[in-house]
């Protein structure tokens, strides 16, 4: 079993790339963890598509205001300088290119930048929420994900097999093993866990990894 980053460590790594003064949307679930690892000294404003800019952490149990929730319908708190707005304005922020960064989860990411993260197929009740809007929402659309599925299959693939959320939308992927950019329809390796050889990483990846020279080590603190 190869060593790999925990979800907290993947979130930490993604957080390091969010610049000062950025407006950021974090997908519900795993991507919400990114907010915990904001490097000190940077001011970042989080957007939630149900209508709040500049929300903060969850309130203490019993202190919830159920009109102050995030897109995952969890209670949040407001920071000084927050704003409320209706849904058309909220998605104008999204589609209009006003967000700097969106960080989303994934079932599959293709080397073309296609993302599948909303449906695992025709069974059950389909639900999309804001996923298809958010992939067109930001100047940078990053994905955080385990490098492989629970049964060891690559999540980074040539072409997605699951229903697409968006076409050619992802720009960077933070996985449990590596940091990979998508450029010109190819996976370009930027960082990898030092304990992992290039061959091992390639074997766990469903499309060719371009290696543009010496690759930086993916170094993340214990969290």
């Amino acid at each position: 079993m190869t060593a790999k980053l925990t979800n907290n460590q993947i979130a930490w790594r993604a957080a390091q790339d969010i610049p000062d003064r950025a407006y950021v949307n974090l997908g519900i679930g795993f991507p919400e963890k990114v907010a915990q690892y904001q490097p000190p000294g940077r001011e970042v404003i989080f957007h939630t598509e149900n209508g709040i800019l500049n929300f903060g952490e969850s309130p203490a149990p019993g202190q919830e205001d159920w009109d102050v929730i995030n897109a995952g319908k969890k209670a949040v708190t407001l920071k000084p300088g927050s704003a409320f707005f209706h849904h058309a304005d909220s998605f104008a922020m999204v589609r209009g290119g006003h967000l700097d960064v969106a960080i989303l989860g994934a079932y599959e990411v293709a080397e073309t930048g296609d993302l599948a993260n909303w449906s695992t197929g025709p069974k059950g009740v389909p639900a999309v929420g804001g996923a298809m809007d958010l992939v067109h929402g930001a100047k940078r659309v990053a994905v955080i994900t385990d490098h492989v599925t629970r049964d060891g299959k690559p999540k980074l693939v040539q072409r997605c097999s699951l229903p697409l959320t968006g076409v050619a939308c992802v720009t960077r992927i933070y996985t449990s093993l590596a940091v990979i950019d998508i450029e010109g329809g190819r996976f370009v390796l930027r960082e990898r866990l030092p304990s992992l050889s290039l061959d091992e990483l390639q074997a766990l990846t469903g499309a060719e990894l371009l290696v543009p020279g010496p690759i930086a080590d993916l170094i993340v603190p214990e969290l």
Binding site: H87, A88, S90, M132, D133, H136, V167
Partner: peptide
């Protein structure tokens, strides 16, 4: 999609019969 739902409703209220959005392009 959520943003499309919001904009379709806004358009309905604003007398705009149709609009174009990047959302859902290339999807089911």
């Amino acid at each position: 999609p959520q943003g499309t739902l919001a904009e379709r409703i806004r358009a309905g209220g604003a007398g705009i019969p149709a609009f174009y959005t990047p959302t859902s392009y290339g999807t089911d």
